[in-house]
Design a protein around this nucleic acid. Structure first.
Length: 420
RNA sequence: GUGGGAUUAGCUCAGUUGGUUAGAGCGCCAGAUUGUGGCUCUGGAGGUCGUGGGUUCGAUUCCCAUAUCUCACCCCA
């Protein structure tokens, strides 16, 4: 029986890895510009961390976690997201004692047991960043700006920023009552799930995709219009900061993040190409989270970016990494010159130039065909060249040739100094 | 958890109204008078037709189950 990759997992093959490395490298560079340092945290944690951090009423924790017992009977879970583990590390390692605000970023895989569809996998990749210890909206704006710059660097266009405020525990409780009062007469019309949501978390009704629910919620009072003075001030101030940075957000009263820890600012970068999984990046403020994990009350904000979705969007927009990869020089050899070719290849590599030579005794013609597919330049090292020390370096894409002296490695290096 | 579509070569897909050795294109490997790629021509390797049952003299084809892929709902990145 053939063994296949488990449902919801996939291989990232050599041909696409250049794209991954490109977005990873660019993300790390962008984060560094904003003072974010990388943090690496465990792939699995105590299940309780996610119950407390992400929230044990969320679908993510209730239905989608890969939870197992280890041999000592501990309940562990593969991380379904990155923030909880980072907050745990922040508290456990006393990072609060470092200069504030503390900014960290990460590049992780996360795991959720759910049905697979376009842009959604059971093992998926996230880039994320968290900032601890800054309560004001300036850090919110800075993080959004970081993402905006990141997308610009990649050459991504047409991705819109949606922002909302979901208030603090105080204004949210008050709002729940207002919303329930509005929805109560419509309970008969609302879908089944929304009836459950009405009791559990009425905020979610706003997010329902069912047409008849949408019709009702369109007129519903929005949390954004019922913020307490502090939250209102925070939101207004955030908009001013974004304006200063030249960022125009869409105010979207419908953004309701599904993780319990969010407070006040929530935001999403949305694409038009990835279908209903169009949220490439989602984030927000979580002012109560550090405390609920056992740390001192500390404000925080962070985001997570779905790498698979980002790559899909880049592909849909036809954006390609600038560097193509592949080897730069193929050294073709013949039976009597195999040793010379191996030595020359080693010397070229020593100079930091990616080079290859035949390993499987192919004919010259077959070597040329191979080189045409894999390399930018080719150099034929036959008996004549080995004897005279003179060879021709051909640029396969241009069809041009130059004579080079095989004993003058510095001159060979010059031919590659333009990066081609 | 729910619903639709799909599953034949490494990839994209034909096909058999049920009948001996299952096809194409691309890709891969090799050759076209022994030292030069992309074009062309020729040849080759590669498939127990997703898996397990059932019907039948006979199943890749019909029926059932199951797995996987895929799209959507839910939820999320």
């Amino acid at each position: 029986m053939k063994i296949t990759a488990p449902k919801g997992t996939r291989d990232i093959l050599p041909d696409e890895v250049a794209r991954w490395q490109w977005v990873e490298r660019t993300f790390a560079e962008t984060c560094a510009l904003y003072g974010y340092q990388e943090i690496r945290v465990p792939t699995f944690e105590h299940t309780e961390l996610f119950q407390r951090g992400v929230g044990d009423t969320t679908d993510v924790v209730q239905k989608e976690m890969y939870t197992f017992e280890d041999k000592a009977g501990r309940s562990l879970s593969l991380r379904p997201e990155g923030t909880a583990g980072v907050v745990r590390a922040y508290v456990e390692n006393g990072l609060a004692s470092q200069p504030s605000p503390l900014r960290v970023y990460y590049n992780i895989t996360a795991f959720r047991y759910e049905n697979v569809q376009k842009g959604r996998y059971r093992e998926f990749h996230q880039f994320g960043a968290e900032a601890f210890g800054a309560a004001g909206p300036a850090v919110d704006a800075e993080q959004i700006h970081l993402l905006d710059q990141y997308f610009k660097k990649l050459g991504l266009a047409k991705t819109s920023l949606h922002i909302n405020s979901i208030g603090c525990p105080v204004c949210r409780t008050a709002y729940h009552d207002i919303l329930r009062d509005y929805l109560r007469p419509h309970l008969g019309t609302l879908c089944e799930t929304c009836n459950v949501r009405f009791d559990k978390n009425p905020l979610r009704v706003i997010d329902c995709k069912v047409d008849r629910c949408k019709a009702i919620t369109q007129e519903a009072p929005a949390l954004l219009d019922h913020l307490c003075p502090d939250c209102q001030n925070h939101f207004d101030s955030l908009r001013r900061h974004l304006d200063l940075l030249g960022i125009e957000p869409v105010i979207d009263r419908g953004i309701v993040r599904g993780l319990d820890y969010y407070t006040r600012t929530v935001f999403e970068f949305v694409s038009k190409h990835v279908g209903t999984q169009g949220t490439i990046c989602g984030g927000g403020r979580y002012d109560g989270l550090v405390e609920s994990i056992g740390g001192h009350p500390t404000p925080g904000i962070g985001f997570a970016l779905g790498v698979e979705r980002l790559l899909m969007e880049l592909a849909a927009q036809g954006v390609e990494p600038s560097d193509g990869g592949g080897i730069r020089l193929y050294i073709a050899s013949m039976e009597p010159t195999r040793d010379e070719a191996a030595v020359l290849c080693a010397r070229i590599r020593d100079m930091g130039i990616a080079a290859e030579t035949d390993l499987i005794g192919r004919s010259l013609k077959a070597q040329m065909k191979y080189a045409a597919k894999k390399a930018r330049h080719v150099l034929v090292l036959g008996e004549d060249e080995a004897a005279s020390g003179q060879a021709r370096l051909r640029d396969l894409s241009q069809g041009t040739e130059v004579d080079i002296d095989l004993n003058d490695l510095a001159s060979i290096r010059r031919h590659f100094s333009d990066g081609r």
